[in-house]
Amino acid sequence: MLSMTRQRAQPSAQDRAYGWLKEYVAALPGTQGRFLTEAEVCAETGLSRTPVREALLRLEAEQFIEIMPNKGAYIPPITERQVAHLMDARALVEDWCVRRSVELSQHIVPRLQNIIAEQKGLKDRPVDFINCDREFHRTIVAAAGNEVIANIYESLRDRQLRTGLTALAASAERTALVLTEHQTIVDAIATGKADVAARAVEKHLASTLGVLHRLNTAKSTPMLTGRTFT
């Protein structure tokens, strides 16, 4: 019975292919588009074509890729609409959560300081740096104590990773600025004033969006066209 339980707990071949693909897409810079074939995924994962094909269809349904006959799966650059929707969602969730988390500041401030210290050692590892960045914000969201909102925030993970990597690649100073902005958020939470903490988060998210907007202006890519930011 125990062995059967363990066997059921193992991810299926489709789930393994899906997990690998999600990580691959998330780590691809947001301004970069490319094709990915079933054969490439099979070679990387050691899986057969059937679970890989099923995983690709799942990703297409989630609008992460576009399957094109005789060409493969196209991973498009992040569009202006996607960035705008992501940042709007983050602003709504993180504003509410940081206000709630202020009540527990004595518990989360040391944890947030530890994350900042960890981030400082990841300056030359962009993917790890952004994953750590996300853990910083996730800690604040979790401190608000609302599981439904926390689950919604979890669903944004892959999009956050991809836009975060794009922002880092766009600005040599972005890594240091993120660390400074995170410290400002922690200091604001420690004051015990919800409005001060919310403003610090708002400025941090606006800073990220500003970097992406400047990237669009400089390179004239299709990433962030069609919207005016103030």
Results as ranks from 00 to 15, higher is better:
Q10W: 00
P11W: 02
D15S: 11
K22E: 08
A26N: 08
G30R: 08
E40R: 13
C42T: 02
A43M: 04
L57Y: 06
R58E: 06
Q63F: 01
Q63S: 14
F64I: 06
I67G: 01
N70Y: 08
Q82N: 04
A89D: 06
R90Q: 12
A91E: 06
A91K: 12
V93N: 00
E94Q: 14
L104T: 15
V109L: 05
I115S: 04
I116E: 05
I116H: 04
A117D: 14
Q119H: 07
Q119L: 13
K120A: 11
L122G: 10
R125Y: 02
R125H: 13
P126V: 09
I130V: 15
G145M: 02
N146W: 03
N146I: 07
I149K: 10
I149F: 02
A150T: 12
A150C: 06
Y153V: 01
Y153L: 05
R157E: 12
Q160K: 13
L161R: 09
G164Y: 03
T180C: 02
D187M: 04
A188H: 01
A194R: 15
V196F: 13
A197S: 06
A198M: 02
R199P: 08
H204K: 03
V211Y: 00
V211H: 00
S220I: 02
S220F: 07
T225I: 07
T225G: 14
T230V: 09
